[in-house]
Design a protein around this nucleic acid. Structure first.
Length: 719
DNA sequence: CATGTCTCCATTTTT
DNA sequence: TGGAGACATG
């Protein structure tokens, strides 16, 4: 048998062969984190220290869970069905299904994804006649989820002022509505399973004795509730292994609390901290840049990446005149790299915010370069899929009001707002679901309107009884009229294809070797559809350039990375300046971006950019100044002389060639002895009385300065 | 009930 | 700038 430890460096080996104690593994970017995690499990199994039954492995994304599973299956000649590997939400779901009675849930509870939840909240606010100007549904949703993610029930939420009090009431009302409808939102999955274990010592003990080893990936991304959840499994004899990287914590905005790492170290792993610092991904210059940059963050656990590979290419920096030039530069370089034999799919173009992709896409499209944008609509989020799922949800559980409302009149069958209002009133009067309320109305079964709908669902349920899942779906698609509807729609072919794919996905689902069927396969499938929204859109297959946000790039790697839009106000983003540890979070984001590149890293910025329909003049991101200049070198393009902005715009140049470019063109960066660095917004006046408007940082704002007096000097990036 | 028009508003996102 | 959601109109 090949030795599992072959090819592991000493730190990796140490982590893998740790005795059964709790430990914190500080795993830098590209340090073989997943490999360590899976090898640890394999090692535990192979040395007979644990059986698959004893292991719980928790990840954040389904993708990570799958990857771990796949790698394990490859390492060990076994089908690891006994192994509990999954996401926090997936595992919570499993717990709640198993112990639904103890958790106070119906056997076939449904899971609401983010969109379902929002729709449900809107519905609730309307029913309660809440002023949605004062209580924005999204805010309410945020509030509820934030409470839950901090482990708080509505009755323990802060009620200092009237607004908070009202919010807490809405939170309570939401939980009641969910309970009534037998549905559970994402945060509730966690909170409810947490409470299940807290309130039922016998169940908790069962799992504590079962799981000797609990492993957690991406620990820096856990929120407070997730940490608490994990601790439920920490019995006397369990060993917790948390793997993470505080420098890659970029999800604070959605509740991630990287302080959990410090807490974990204090509570569980005082003596066992292992650093994985050897990087197997990037070349030296790239790592040096990353290390230097992140070194500016205070309060790190501390870690310095190094590589046995050489220094590699210098980092290339482009200062484009505007966003279009920046985009053209990317096209040009991408084509050149492709010409040198690099696959487009191994090249990524990264940006801070999605809005920046448009210019890039436009340029790529014009240049005929195939590209793929990550982050669009996902499979299970498509309208037609959601409609189909709503029918299926009604089959499984007719009291699901969200599902009911989504399809009661889709395709249209003459059920208008008035009918629904009455139905809703009936439902509230009887304290029942909309579905049950139908029985109180005088709708004639089989006719048009409500009666017809009820008959439709009833016969559908009858006709699909006993059928296999794909057939159930197939039948539902036809009987509901969805197929017919999209067939008559002119742009409907794509949607029909997607509906076909839904049936196909059910087949794949059943064949998955890791799938552990429960007594209700349809509910299992619906849970999957909620918990795993599927791949992001955009057609795969073809070799294409990869466009995505820096967030979306986390965990990925590319031979070449273009990191675009490195301007103050964009990256770091404007609003991060006002947030508590905003700049540090942005810096970590930058760190993540840099460490995606294996060989070539391009950093680019545009002096002028269209943003929200307005022209913005930017100055280079402060992060550029945090990278040692020796690692960088200006990028040169073949087609255009590059044109760093100041080469064209320098006042001295302008003095000789006086017409074309003004001496102090908008967009130029300047330094003022008192106000610091700013950017020219506009200029006016003649030779003697010339004035310029300059935007400085937060404290000084925008100012008009007379050139004759103000000691302004032009500056360039990196100074 | 579908379609057009207007207004508002813009980080990052997984489950 | 442009997309999404709210409202009005045929």
């Amino acid at each position: 048998m090949p030795d599992l430890l072959d090819g592991l460096n000493p730190q990796q080996q140490a982590a893998v062969t740790l005795p059964p104690v709790s430990a914190l593994i500080l795993a830098g970017a590209g340090s073989g984190k997943t490999r360590v995690l899976t090898t640890r499990i394999a090692w535990l199994l192979q040395t007979g220290q644990a059986s698959a039954h004893n292991i719980l492995a928790v990840t954040f994304t389904n993708k990570a869970a799958r990857e771990m599973q796949t790698r394990l299956t490859a390492m060990l000649p076994m089908s690891p069905r006994d192994l509990w590997i999954g996401t926090f939400h997936g595992l919570s779901n499993r717990l709640l299904r198993t112990h639904h009675a103890a958790a106070g849930l119906p056997r076939l509870f449904q899971i609401l994804d983010q969109a379902d939840q929002l729709a449900g909240i809107k519905r609730m606010l309307k029913a309660m006649q809440v002023d949605t100007d004062r209580f924005d549904p999204r805010k309410v949703q945020q509030y509820i989820n934030q409470n839950k993610e901090n482990g708080l029930r509505a009755d323990r939420a802060e009620t200092g002022d009237p607004w908070n009090r009202r919010m807490a009431e809405l939170h309570a009302a939401w939980d009641e509505q969910c309970q009534r409808e037998g549905v559970v939102d994402f945060a509730e999955l966690l909170l409810r399973s947490n409470e299940l274990l807290e309130r039922h010592p016998e169940i908790r003990e069962h799992y504590r004795t079962r799981f000797h080893h609990v492993l957690i990936d991406e620990f820096q991304d856990t929120n407070r509730l997730q940490y608490r959840w994990l601790k439920q499994f920490a019995g006397e004899h369990s060993a917790l292994m948390a793997v993470g990287d505080d420098d890659q914590s970029i999800y604070a905005f959605r509740g991630a609390h990287s302080g959990n790492m410090l807490d974990f170290q204090r509570e569980f792993a005082r003596e066992h901290l292992i650093r994985l610092e050897q990087n197997y991904r990037s070349q030296g210059n790239i790592l040096d840049a990353a290390n230097a940059l992140i070194g500016n963050n205070p309060g790190r656990l501390g870690k310095t990446l190094w590589t046995a590979a050489g220094q590699g290419e210098p980092i290339r920096v482009l200062e484009a005149l505007d966003d279009q030039q920046e985009a053209r530069f990317v096209c040009e370089r991408a084509l050149a790299l492709q010409g040198e034999g690099q696959a487009l799919s191994d090249i990524a173009v990264l940006y801070r915010s999605n809005a920046q992709s448009r210019v890039l896409e436009h340029a790529l499209f014009s240049a005929g370069i195939p590209y793929r944008v990550h982050g669009g609509l996902r499979f299970f989020e498509r309208q037609e899929i959601r409609h189909a799922l709503a029918y299926l949800r009604l089959l499984a559980h007719a009291d699901d009001d969200s599902a009911f409302l989504r399809v009661v009149n889709f395709p249209t069958r003459g059920i208008g707002a008035r009918t629904l209002e009455q139905l809703d009133a009936t439902a509230r009067a009887h304290g029942c679901s909309l579905w049950q309320a139908c029985t109180y109305t005088d709708a004639k079964p089989g006719g048009r309107g409500l009666g017809g709908f009820v008959t439709l669902i009833d016969t559908l349920r009858e006709h699909t009884r006993g059928l296999a899942l794909p057939e159930i779906i197939e039948h539902t698609l036809h009987a509901s009229g969805l197929i017919e509807h999209y067939r008559s729609e002119k742009e409907g072919q794509d949607r029909l294809d997607n509906l076909d794919e839904l049936v196909q996905s059910a087949r794949v689902f059943l064949q998955d070797e890791h799938y552990v069927p429960s007594d209700d396969v349809l509910s299992d499938f619906l849970a999957l559809a909620s918990l795993e929204a599927g791949n992001h859109a955009a057609d795969a297959g073809q070799d294409a350039l990869q466009l995505m946000t820096v967030h979306a790039a986390k965990g990925l790697e590319f031979g070449t990375v273009f990191l675009t839009g490195l301007e103050e106000g964009l990256f770091p983003g404007e609003q991060s300046l006002n947030e508590r540890h905003g700049i540090e979070e942005e810096r970590r984001l930058m760190y993540v971006a840099i460490t995606r590149a294996r060989k070539l890293l391009y950093l680019s910025l545009a002096r002028v950019r269209m943003l929200h329909g307005q022209t913005r003049y930017g100055i280079p991101s402060r992060f550029l100044d945090e990278i040692p200049p020796g690692l960088m070198r200006p990028a040169v393009t073949a087609a255009e002389p590059v044109a760093t902005a100041h080469a064209v715009a320098r006042p001295t140049d302008a003095a000789t060639a006086r017409s074309a470019t003004p001496a102090w063109p908008p967009g130029m960066s300047v330094r003022h002895p008192k106000f610091g660095i700013g950017v020219i917004l506009r200029a006016e006046g003649g030779a003697d009385d010339a004035r310029v408007q300059v935007r400085f940082g937060r404290e000084h704002g925008e100012k008009w300065l007379a050139l004759a007096y103000a000691r302004l000097e032009p500056i360039t990036a990196g100074q």
